[in-house]
């Protein structure tokens, strides 16, 4: 698995590179700003791009905009965007422009190495990885309205959150110490309650759930 990194802080760039190499990824380039990142991606055509949102020169959302452009130019390259802060708007923009192969995670998630690497692999294989923080935010919002989300059992809400984070049934089962069969049962009940069409594709599942959480 070939990876290009975009991160302006050298310590973190180095740390991320070590984590990835220990996890069996090959880091082919590590860019220090958004312009360099796009150039490296065009040159190396990696399987995965991991980039910080806030990068030089403007220290604003350059990394995100670069990621969106990379997605448009190379739809087959998986893109994971890292940030110190979660915003629903950024999640919307990333999900809207993609058919999976996209991730939006807090930087702090790098530390939980196994989960982080598993999320990366999921994204490379066409899945989606949304940070639990943003999903929790969306769920909290959804629960404020009188919609069916409030009527879900706590367990079902847990499953819904993991679905929104982009976890496969197998990973949800492992996380919640359930059998995969039990997870399937939970998901179909959630689909019924929210009035969503059943869909095996994990990215379409994330999009449907997010759309539901955003627009009710």
């Amino acid at each position: 698995m070939r990876v290009v990194i975009g991160e302006d802080e050298s310590l973190l760039r180095r740390g991320l590179q070590l984590v990835l190499e220990d996890g069996g990824f090959e880091v082919v380039a590590a860019a220090q700003d958004a312009v360099e990142l796009e150039k490296d991606v065009d040159e190396h055509l990696p399987d995965l791009v991991i980039t910080d949102i806030r990068m030089p020169p403007g220290h604003s959302d350059e990394g995100l905009l670069a990621a969106l452009r990379i997605r448009a130019r190379h739809p087959h390259i998986a893109v994971v965007v890292l940030s110190q802060h979660m915003q629903r708007r950024y999640a919307d923009e990333l999900l809207a422009e993609s058919n999976g192969k996209v991730g939006y995670l807090l930087k702090q998630r790098i530390a939980d190495v196994d989960t982080f690497l598993a999320d990366l692999r999921e994204v490379i294989q066409g899945g989606t990885a949304l940070d639990p923080d943003i999903v929790a935010l969306m769920l909290a919002r959804a629960k404020l309205s009188d919609g069916p989300v409030r009527k879900l059992t706590p367990r079902q809400q847990e499953v819904l959150a993991l679905m929104a984070e982009g976890r496969s049934n197998a990973r949800i089962a492992a996380e919640l110490f359930l059998s995969e069969k039990a997870v399937v049962q939970h998901t179909s009940r959630i689909y019924d309650a929210l009035g969503l069409a059943l869909d095996g594709d994990s990215h379409r599942r994330v999009q449907a759930v997010m759309r539901y959480l955003t627009h009710g």
Binding site: E9, L12, G15, V19, K107, I110, A111, D112, V113, D114
Partner: peptide, 16 residues
Amino acid sequence: QMQLVLLALEAQQMAN
């Protein structure tokens, strides 16, 4: 914020 990422990473790598 960056240091906390690195510290957590260090701790987890120690555990692993």
